[in-house]
Amino acid sequence: MDVVRALNARNGIARVATLRRSGVTDHTLRQAVRAGVVISVCRGWVGLPAADPMLLAAAKRGVVLSCVTVAARKDLWVTAASQPHVAAPAKSGHANAARGVVHWSRPIFPRDPELLEDSIENALVLVARCQPYEDALATWESAMRAGAVDPDVLDRAPLPPAARRLMIDARPFADAGTETIFRTRLAWLDVPITPQVWVIGHRVDFLIGERLVVQIDGGHHVGPQRASDIAHDAELMLRGYHVIRIGYDQLMNHWASVQSRILAAIAQRLHLAS
């Protein structure tokens, strides 16, 4: 068995024992290390020099990537993932050398010892414990929307309280995490807030009451998309709707002013048809 091919099949890094089981001999492995084709990562692990640095670091420190780091690597919505989050067995002293946030915990879903990246299910459980509620909910809903998890399987697992709450609250309908956060922050409002509604030929992010449309702009609202948005806004207003557009920075960093604007519109009964 060619050692490079065997490692490529395992994201560029693997246990020596795993390579042996796949047919790589000790002689072949030693030759590859001497030639610089393969590097010794740590005791029991080898990898390709160009392997994912995060996986190499995880092997060296005896941890697995998890929590928001796994979510971000799977292109799910994550509010902040500036430092790596890893998981380690409870009372694991070796993981003290790991940089970033270390989660010492017993996984809900068994971890494959051959892998250095946690399952998305275990990662979501840690997200529930680690992140603020609205940020965690956005990540959970992103996973459900992307089909990254089976909600029925999660629901039957013995989830801890924080994860169980998210399991109950999460819905796969938000088009982006910003919509989850917006809806969560206004959950106290005693007015119907309906996400992803088709109005006059276009889908709008939120319809508050009967006539108040809220659109949350992301980075893609430029060029032709922006022109289409402006045209639809004009059509909505001509048909008796009131439109409020907010940007990412406004939502995340200036929520008080956003909420004040929405409440002022409701106070003026702009959300009502008559």
Score class of each variant (00 low, 15 high):
residue 1 M to D: 06
residue 4 V to W: 03
residue 4 V to F: 12
residue 7 L to M: 08
residue 10 R to C: 12
residue 11 N to K: 15
residue 13 I to D: 09
residue 15 R to Y: 04
residue 16 V to E: 14
residue 18 T to A: 14
residue 22 S to P: 10
residue 24 V to W: 13
residue 26 D to E: 12
residue 28 T to N: 02
residue 28 T to Y: 15
residue 29 L to M: 11
residue 31 Q to S: 14
residue 33 V to D: 00
residue 34 R to N: 09
residue 35 A to D: 01
residue 36 G to N: 08
residue 37 V to L: 08
residue 37 V to R: 12
residue 39 I to N: 13
residue 44 G to N: 08
residue 48 L to T: 06
residue 50 A to P: 13
residue 51 A to Q: 14
residue 52 D to V: 04
residue 53 P to L: 02
residue 54 M to D: 04
residue 56 L to E: 13
residue 57 A to Y: 11
residue 59 A to P: 13
residue 64 V to M: 11
residue 68 V to H: 07
residue 73 R to V: 01
residue 75 D to S: 12
residue 75 D to N: 14
residue 76 L to N: 12
residue 78 V to C: 08
residue 78 V to A: 09
residue 80 A to D: 14
residue 80 A to E: 14
residue 89 P to R: 09
residue 90 A to M: 07
residue 91 K to E: 11
residue 92 S to I: 07
residue 93 G to P: 09
residue 94 H to L: 11
residue 97 A to E: 00
residue 103 H to W: 00
residue 106 R to Q: 10
residue 110 P to T: 06
residue 112 D to S: 00
residue 113 P to E: 14
residue 114 E to C: 00
residue 116 L to N: 05
residue 116 L to S: 10
residue 120 I to S: 12
residue 122 N to M: 11
residue 122 N to W: 06
residue 128 A to S: 01
residue 129 R to W: 06
residue 130 C to I: 02
residue 131 Q to P: 02
residue 136 A to L: 06
residue 139 T to K: 10
residue 139 T to Q: 05
residue 141 E to M: 03
residue 144 M to S: 10
residue 145 R to M: 03
residue 149 V to W: 09
residue 149 V to R: 13
residue 151 P to L: 04
residue 152 D to W: 04
residue 156 R to F: 00
residue 156 R to A: 13
residue 159 L to P: 09
residue 161 P to Q: 03
residue 166 L to E: 04
residue 166 L to M: 03
residue 167 M to C: 10
residue 168 I to M: 14
residue 170 A to M: 13
residue 172 P to R: 00
residue 172 P to F: 00
residue 172 P to N: 11
residue 173 F to T: 14
residue 173 F to G: 10
residue 177 G to Q: 00
residue 180 T to A: 07
residue 182 F to E: 01
residue 185 R to T: 08
residue 190 D to I: 12
residue 191 V to K: 05
residue 195 P to V: 08
residue 198 W to T: 15
residue 199 V to N: 08
residue 204 V to G: 15
residue 204 V to I: 14
residue 206 F to D: 01
residue 206 F to T: 13
residue 209 G to R: 03
residue 211 R to P: 08
residue 213 V to H: 04
residue 214 V to I: 11
residue 214 V to Q: 03
residue 214 V to D: 01
residue 215 Q to F: 03
residue 215 Q to S: 09
residue 215 Q to M: 07
residue 216 I to C: 04
residue 218 G to T: 07
residue 219 G to Q: 15
residue 220 H to I: 05
residue 222 V to D: 06
residue 222 V to F: 10
residue 223 G to A: 04
residue 223 G to S: 04
residue 228 S to K: 13
residue 229 D to S: 02
residue 229 D to F: 05
residue 233 D to A: 02
residue 233 D to M: 10
residue 233 D to G: 08
residue 234 A to Y: 14
residue 238 L to A: 10
residue 241 Y to N: 13
residue 242 H to A: 15
residue 243 V to A: 11
residue 243 V to H: 01
residue 244 I to E: 08
residue 245 R to S: 01
residue 245 R to D: 02
residue 247 G to E: 02
residue 249 D to G: 08
residue 252 M to L: 07
residue 253 N to P: 06
residue 254 H to Y: 04
residue 257 S to C: 01
residue 257 S to P: 07
residue 262 I to M: 05
residue 263 L to F: 01
residue 265 A to P: 10
residue 266 I to P: 10
residue 270 L to W: 02
